[in-house]
Design a protein around this nucleic acid. Sequence first.
DNA 1: AAAGATGCCTGTAAGC
DNA 2: TGCTTACAGGCATCTT
Length: 270
Amino acid sequence: MPELPEVETTRRGIAPHCQGQHITRVTVRNGRLRWPVPDDLAARLEGQIIKSVDRRAKYLFLHLEGGAVIVHLGMSGSLRVITDDTPPLTHDHIELELQSGVILRFNDPRRFGCWLWADSPESHPLIASLGPEPLSADFNGPMLFRLSRSKQSPVKSFIMDNHIVVGVGNIYANEALFKAGIHPKRKAGRISLDRYHRLAEAIAETLSAAILMGGTTLRDFVNSDGKPGYFAQSLLVYGRAGEPCKECGTALKEIRMNNRSTVYCPRCQR
DNA sequence: AAAGATGCCTGTAAGC
DNA sequence: TGCTTACAGGCATCTT
């Protein structure tokens, strides 16, 4: 399930193959994604040059002259660089053929992803109201502290709120809260500046480490080469319910919050 | 206004 | 064995 590290891994994988390339052909086999793929997508893209591949939150932008394609991988999406004659398989919904002969192929079994066009992606409704990037200087303890005052919601929901900070999905929220020693159900408004400082650091560290390892593969994530990521072996709590805490040995607990699996150490996290 | 619930999907795993 | 059912989850959107 792609979270920010997986999306960044994908961006780094496809960018060298895309940058400066003419798009020679666009094929949409199944345009029924989270939102319908625009009918005129192929017409807009064919003949254009991909100027750059950028990321904002978990969205990828393929920047062209006069706008960008906004791609989201949803839950199960992947973008792969195809350099041989591997035929498209089930769930290979969209592909871009580039002048170099390389094919950029989008696969998404659950179809929670999207491919949209925006003349100005930064001001697109999906993008405009997003919070800061977790690996930027705009994200830090003091801003978390300030935005959390008067918040009654649990801290886990708070850090997964895209208006507060982007790119913190379920897996990494669990990991970062463990690292910071904060109980996932603690009310966001009742956490000190000091602890928010630790939390901001834990989030940045967790995401950076996962990017370095090429992301986390639990079930189906593959990078642009079709290979899995290796961060799963570094997970401290996620997927380890009932197993001993790596800090204190206490059995990790699993609860459900907002219908999402939440794992924590009842002793280390307060 | 804020917080919680819902729906979109299908592969995988568990249950009968 | 083969069917049915539950579950996984990002995130916009709806409901309370």
